[in-house]
Nucleic acid binder design. Structure first.
Lengths: 201, 201
DNA sequence: CAACTAGGGTACTTTTCGTACCGTATTCGC
DNA sequence: GCGAATACGGTACGAAAAGTACCCTAGTTG
């Protein structure tokens, strides 16, 4: 009856996103229901569906609001940098935010159009810090130049993610991180320019 | 009215599982509904819920029926064996069966009690062939003995799985497999006993 | 000021899981 | 063999939750 000052456009969109973020942090993606988001934003599902085609799209948009960049480590040694990057990743995936990311990846279920939006947070963009850190190590002579390749550079973090997927652990113990670095990553990137395993004939 | 010869116990259980397997192969895990399985098995949901607590458990049980062991390669060279193992995994994950496995892992969502049942197919048991193949390579002098460790031995297959998760590809091209073997796996396991990256002090 | 657009309220359809009842066939203990 | 316990079959139901459809109304736009 009184002044209803109906929100529109960007204002309403922000309110919806903020409500989605709140639901996401409180209840995870599983608990993100369109009705609850609408209720919390003080609107209704219509307004949401006009902006996002489905629940997953809304979830991804809300997740992006939450994702934040972490500082690049620079300990002066590859081992320290690699461990710090792994610890950052471990913290992230152990956090409620990590659980949400996993749920979203799961819900995307290989749909490339959705995966592309999440890769900035989990995939290719994750390669950038590793390449930087590894580049410094190469300059220092700690690593062979031919390892400056995304596939090689990100081996450590891929192995750590594998721990989460396969073991379903809430958080990988630090031993595991150290093992990944010492048993796999450092030996891999330190190889001096031996014959790099070309096929025979 | 006439002789209904009602099935019980193991006979009924097999019928249900077989129906679940059929639904799984035809429609994937998403299409595996309790009602359809019951109808197909010529029974009703009661009989199912008496045996499996929920849809996921039934899906896992049905998947296990489908999973079959593959022969261990022995090409006489580590590179050939590794590539063959990767190609087997690639074929598996590209197949409808692989899609089902991914869906199940997704549905398990980190629940350890379910993950444990799937790890035989995707996780730890997958380490056994790699350790065998790698053991032969060590005996031949193709690999350093200290790499006979599950974490190191399975690096290649973990990287391949990562391709599926991150890229959402239906099937990894063979170049990727070759790259994983030549750029990562072989250099990693071939390291001669250098200083294995212990922490400084 | 009139026409158009976008929000709000609400109800509804659909799908599917999981549960509850109730009568009956089969098996098991005696 | 015979009665009691158990497991099946049929069916119906409750509970979410996604997504859709209308209709009315508040703002915006020209």
């Amino acid at each position: 009856m009184a002044g209803q000052t109906r929100r529109r456009g960007a204002a309403l969109e922000e309110a919806i996103l903020q409500a989605a973020v709140a639901e996401l942090t409180e209840s995870g993606f599983a608990g993100l229901t369109m009705d609850k988001v609408a209720a919390r934003a003080g609107t209704n599902k219509n307004a949401i569906y006009r902006r996002w085609p489905n629940r997953l799209a809304l979830g991804i948009a809300a997740y992006k609001q939450l994702a934040t960049a972490v500082p690049l480590p620079d300990t002066g040694e590859l081992r320290g940098d690699a461990l710090e990057l792994l610890r950052q990743a471990n913290r992230h995936w152990s956090s409620p935010l990590g659980a949400i990311l996993r749920d979203l990846l799961v819900a995307a279920g290989g749909a490339t159009e959705f995966l592309a939006q999440l890769q900035d947070q989990s995939g290719d963009a994750a390669a950038a810090p590793w390449l930087t850190v590894l580049g410094r190590a190469v300059a220092r002579g700690e690593a062979a130049p031919e390892v400056l390749h995304p596939r090689v550079a990100t081996v450590a973090v891929v192995l750590l993610r594998n721990e989460f997927v396969v073991r379903g652990v809430p958080s990988a113990p630090d031993d595991v991180l150290v093992e990944i670095v010492d048993e796999v990553y450092l030996p891999l990137v330190r190889r001096r320019g031996e014959d790099a395993g070309q096929a025979p004939g």
